[in-house]
Design a protein around this nucleic acid. Structure first.
Lengths: 336, 336
DNA sequence: TGGGCTTGCGCAATCGATTCCGCTATGATA
DNA sequence: TATCATAGCGGAATCGATTGCGCAAGCCCA
């Protein structure tokens, strides 16, 4: 009867009359081990159901072989999709993923970052709400690479990121509205403190200016990317004397709220007011009317973020910071 | 100039002329340390930005202080919400969360389980697709507790779980349809190999039988919880000579597909056919018509699963297996 | 046959923290 | 004043794996 509950490398070594180093090398494939002993080791491992202790391995290697992902809201399908893409790539490369949800709370983000640093993550994918300068500095010092997604903060140095061209995205979408002959176009923006919110607003602004189309301030509302703020913004827009022909809404959740407000007034989309929006591939198509959107390739964002991160962790680290900008995908719905 | 890139416990100890043991005790609060040195240590820690190495700590404590969560599809808002609840509780208790997405693939589930065991997770929350008997056995041997959610497998022993009463849920929903005078009620089930799919079907069956209402086989279709299968199931139902008055659909994603099929035929919900369904709190309300559903309290499922797990990991472990069954929440929409 | 090279493997240090054990100094008690 | 308990702290083993170094045996070729 063995007195250990779990089988250790040492147990395998003893059973075979080998040293721990040989067993280790046989399993990792590094170093020189004869084919015969390699087979012996593999058999013993299988027989005893040996599972290597990654904690011990990580300690020795000074690397947790895991990547941390912090998002603001995992129930937002955009982030869930990012996560899916990142997790797939990480898993393929033998990295596990530590997840945290900051809930848009800078304090929680900071706490999560601290926890992940303690866990010795190899790298981080971060959708920041901006508010952990200390931790970010520590990451730099310790050489823990970070890839930023979604909200690109204003740091004093270049950094890796994956994002969609939000400016272009909003610009093109607004141009499409203009091309359909619309000129009275309102907008519900996201938080202008976040790059995704700001750039979409700027794209709209530029398109309107280039078209010589005045921006009517009562049709400009700021939301927070949540359903309720879309509802509130649209409600107050509809309370104006004049209402717009079309409204550009900075994400789909707010579009849902806005559409509800329109319905409650007894109006229809797009008969009385057209709606265009931004978001993730999956969520459209569930709605009726289906919303005309600039979709963000969320899974691809996650995938590429993980790839960049893993490149940084292995030898093929590029010299400079990588700022990958993906193109949005235009999906025509029936909401315009 | 210090030659170490990161500050270690030893560095703090040397700086203060203390032993590592004392510093460790000062930080952990265990053992006897004078108030004076405790303060000294805390200051030094703050000054040097010391971050304890959880890997080393975990190795010594033989516990990774993390919980693994494996779900079948993280972009499904039900699982995303479960994750959110579980992650919150875990984080509060100082546990980090390792996430994996099995994509309904038993092989991936097995690989994920193996990886998590290697990482020495303290416990697991598992929405299994059923297919890792070896790993489950190993968890038992190693004393890694598991809380099952969503799909409750048929193991030969009692285990902890958190679920909703799917049978009751479907039974009540069907009864409500019957009470509204409907008798020609069809059903689109989930996979009958999964408990959630099976029990919802059984609840429907029982309600129909008790009401003396015949089940018309062409109105019984099996789907796989995805949009497309709902579309296909409803399409083939609508191709029958006779169509049902109402259809009970085993989850919301399939309901989306079904509604699209109905619309494409030029019919309306609920004028021509009523729809009721099951799912998560958040997703309803986005749809039009809003679907009448039995909602699963997903965040609560995650939260309770994590609580049970952490109870098992601490002293207040209950003697017997905990099978917590939550009640669904009825939400009336306009789809019936 | 002997020098050099390769192969296969073991020894022991090491990663960074925790923790058992025991030592010293201090204060209390008889 | 002698004894003893205890608070505060240090020494060293330990967790389970990895890895640099070195040794011995076997091989090749001169």
């Amino acid at each position: 009867m063995n007195e250990h509950r779990v089988v250790r490398l040492k147990d395998i070594a003893q059973e075979l009359g080998l040293s721990e180093s040989t067993v280790s090398r046989a399993l990792s494939g590094t170093g020189r081990v004869s084919e015969a002993t390699r087979l012996l080791v593999q058999q013993a491992v299988k027989k005893r159901d040996y599972t290597p202790n990654d904690i011990a391995r990580s300690l020795r290697r000074r690397d947790g072989r895991s990547i941390g992902i912090i998002v603001t809201d995992i129930t937002n399908i955009f982030f869930a999709s990012v996560l899916k893409g990142a997790q797939m790539v990480a898993h393929e490369q033998g990295y596990s993923t530590l997840l945290s949800n900051s809930d848009e709370d800078p304090a929680l983000e900071t706490a999560s970052l601290r926890l992940m640093l303690q866990k010795q993550v190899s790298g981080l994918i971060l959708a920041t709400v901006g508010g952990s300068p200390n931790q970010l500095a520590q990451c730099r010092r310790q050489g823990v690479p970070i890839v930023f997604i979604d909200n690109l903060p204003n740091l004093g140095y270049p950094y890796d990121s994956v994002s969609v061209d939000n400016h272009k995205s909003a610009y093109l979408l607004t141009c499409k509205l203009l091309k359909r002959g619309m000129r009275r176009i309102g907008v519900i923006t996201g938080p202008l403190g976040q790059s995704s919110g700001l750039h979409r607003w700027e794209g709209y602004e530029r398109a309107m200016q280039e078209a010589g189309c005045p921006i009517y301030r009562p049709w400009v509302k700021q939301g927070d990317f949540r359903v309720e703020s879309g509802y509130a913004a649209m409600s107050s827009m509809l309370a104006q004397q004049e209402t717009p022909q079309a409204v550009l809404i900075a994400n789909n959740y707010m579009a849902f709220g806005a559409i509800r407000a329109i319905r409650e007034r007894g109006w229809q989309v797009p008969r009385d007011i057209a709606i265009v929006s931004f978001d993730t591939e999956d969520i459209s198509g569930l709605m009726h009317p289906s919303i005309t959107t600039m979709n963000q390739p969320a899974v691809e964002i996650g995938r590429q973020a993980a790839e960049i991160l893993i490149d940084r962790l292995t030898d093929n680290a590029p010299e400079d910071a990588v700022a990958r900008v993906l193109d949005p995908i235009f999906v025509e719905g029936t909401s315009w």
